[in-house]
């Protein structure tokens, strides 16, 4: 893989990390994240189904060989993105659970005071 291909790969992973953890989670960021993920997931399926004959443009854009190389490339991007999003979701759920427990504890001491 040429150096530009490696840089594009690192850039895509960095973009997914930024979307998940660095930028504030507003509607636009969530939408862009979903678009990215959908695009790469469809590309992954496309890279398998239309491996060498039709699916030429994307491997060329990503500076990677068509066929198994592009499948592996896209698989790493999609799985890493999924993992980042799931980690983010877990953290959000953990935070919400913590908030519920904190509320219960604070309400309890308030009631005890009353």
């Amino acid at each position: 893989m040429p150096i530009t291909g490696k840089l594009i790969f690192i850039l895509i992973i960095f973009i997914m990390y930024s979307l998940s953890f660095v930028l504030s989670r507003n509607t636009s960021v969530r939408a862009i994240e979903k678009l990215f993920l959908t695009f790469f997931s469809i590309s992954l399926i496309g890279a398998i189904v239309f491996s060498n004959q039709v699916w030429i443009l994307l491997p060329r854009m990503l500076q990677v060989n068509a066929g198994s190389d592009s499948v592996l490339y896209l698989f790493i991007i999609v799985s890493t993105s999924f993992n980042l999003i799931i980690l983010r979701k877990f953290m959000e759920i953990e935070n919400k659970l913590n908030k519920v427990i904190q509320r219960l504890s604070l309400n309890e001491i308030k009631e005890a005071k009353d």
Partner: peptide, 22 residues
Amino acid sequence: FKSIKHLLNLGQGAALESGFEY
């Protein structure tokens, strides 16, 4: 002495946050 009891172990940051809210 007064105490606020978390039902589960949430971590020291959460304990301080509850303390600050109180």
